[in-house]
Computed example of a mutant assay.
Amino acid sequence: MSTFIAAFVILLLFFLLMSIGYLIKRKAVEGSCGGLGVLGIEKACDCDDPCDKRKRRMAAEEARRAKLTKDRII
């Protein structure tokens, strides 16, 4: 049981240190290799015909972008 508690405390310590580092740098957490964009994949679901849920989400994102560009001052 003491091993579990020690491992848990160490894990919490690392989370605390990472959160302090994030607060100090104010930099977004990012991967080291660039993710799917490096491979030329624009979305996580790289299928030809996305599902209905994905289509609704994409339409909502496009509508939000259109509204933001329409209401832009500059």
Score class of each variant (00 low, 15 high):
M1L: 09
M1W: 06
M1S: 08
S2P: 07
T3W: 12
I5S: 12
I5L: 15
I5C: 08
A6P: 07
A6F: 12
A7T: 14
A7E: 14
A7P: 04
F8G: 15
I10H: 04
I10P: 00
I10R: 12
L11D: 01
L11Y: 10
L11K: 07
L11H: 05
L11E: 01
L12P: 03
L12C: 12
L12S: 09
L13H: 04
L13F: 14
F14A: 10
F14H: 06
F14K: 08
F14V: 14
F14R: 01
F14Y: 08
L16Y: 05
L17Y: 00
L17G: 06
L17T: 03
L17S: 07
M18T: 06
M18Q: 02
S19G: 00
S19C: 00
I20R: 04
I20G: 00
G21V: 07
G21K: 02
I24G: 00
I24F: 07
I24V: 14
K25H: 02
K25L: 10
K25A: 10
K25F: 08
R26L: 07
R26A: 08
K27W: 03
K27R: 10
A28I: 00
A28V: 03
A28P: 00
A28F: 00
V29H: 01
V29I: 12
V29W: 08
E30N: 01
G31T: 05
G31N: 11
S32P: 06
C33N: 12
G35V: 02
G35M: 00
G35Q: 08
V38D: 08
L39G: 03
L39E: 11
G40I: 05
I41T: 02
I41K: 12
I41Y: 11
I41V: 04
E42Q: 13
E42L: 13
E42F: 08
E42Y: 09
K43Q: 13
A44S: 09
A44P: 00
C45E: 05
C45N: 03
D46C: 02
D46P: 03
D46I: 01
D48S: 11
D49S: 02
P50W: 06
P50D: 06
C51A: 03
C51K: 00
D52N: 09
D52T: 11
K53A: 13
R54W: 02
R54Y: 01
K55F: 01
R56D: 10
R57W: 06
R57K: 04
R57Y: 08
R57E: 10
A59L: 05
A59M: 01
A60Q: 09
E61S: 13
A63M: 06
A63Q: 09
R65Q: 14
A66H: 07
A66M: 09
K67E: 15
L68W: 06
L68Q: 13
L68I: 08
T69W: 10
T69E: 15
R72I: 09
R72V: 08
R72M: 13
R72G: 05
I73L: 15
I73S: 14
I73R: 15
I73T: 15
I73Y: 14
I74L: 13
I74E: 13
I74V: 10
